[in-house]
Amino acid sequence: MIEIKNLHANVNGKEILKGINLKVNAGEVHAIMGPNGSGKSTLAQVLSGHPAYQVTQGEVLFEGQDLLDMEPEERAHAGVFLAFQYPVEIPGVSNSYFLKAGLNEIRKSRGQEELDSFQFLKLLKEKMKVVEMDQSFINRPVNEGFSGGEKKRNEILQMAVLEPKLAILDETDSGLDIDALKIVSSGVNKLKSPSNATIVVTHYQRLLNYIVPDFVHVLVHGRIVKSGGKELALELEANGYDFIREEMLQSA
């Protein structure tokens, strides 16, 4: 589904990603772990096309298309979704308007009928049930005044409505209480299908008990330095990142 080859990226002239290689197939769940500041969010932002990041080398193919050549909204239309680590607040604009605008533009780009308000509201309410979100959020401004956990849930709601092919969840688990963690993960699991894929960025093995990854990758200093199965996450949980750093030193 997505193939990242030797991806290098800068922010403010500083190189953050130093050659990322990653291939994700339909139906797979990949987890990316790594110390603070290693570049996980940067990778996620680069994949969704944030203008502050400059790709200096490498390529990214999404279903055979050159992803890096696309505008952020075109990537969304193609089916890339990023659940942000820090979702922004948009005062004055209701959650439902916002999502409907996004969904209809995505549908339009796919040649589907746009949904009218009635159809949309029906869909929205259904999806809100999936993530167990109160209906009062429908008319509240996007993320404004939401608690940290509510923002994360709202991101998953958006994902549920937009039904992406590739979902990238950037630390969606941090800030969630235990119940919310279960709800959010079961939401993610319900949306899982053989035709879509998920990349979860997380610091905690706990989330991976609920969203079971097929692969775990460790990102350090802008490179994937180790990949493995879900056991790798357990190993990291037990030993921290030091053992990887040591391995790196030895192999260096």
Binding site: G49, H50, P51, E71, E73, A76, F98, G102, E105, I106
Partner: peptide, 12 residues
């Protein structure tokens, strides 16, 4: 902000 909206498929 504008980036956030675009990642949800909304045009410029």
């Amino acid at each position: 902000h504008s980036f956030y909206l675009k990642t949800r498929g909304i045009s410029e």
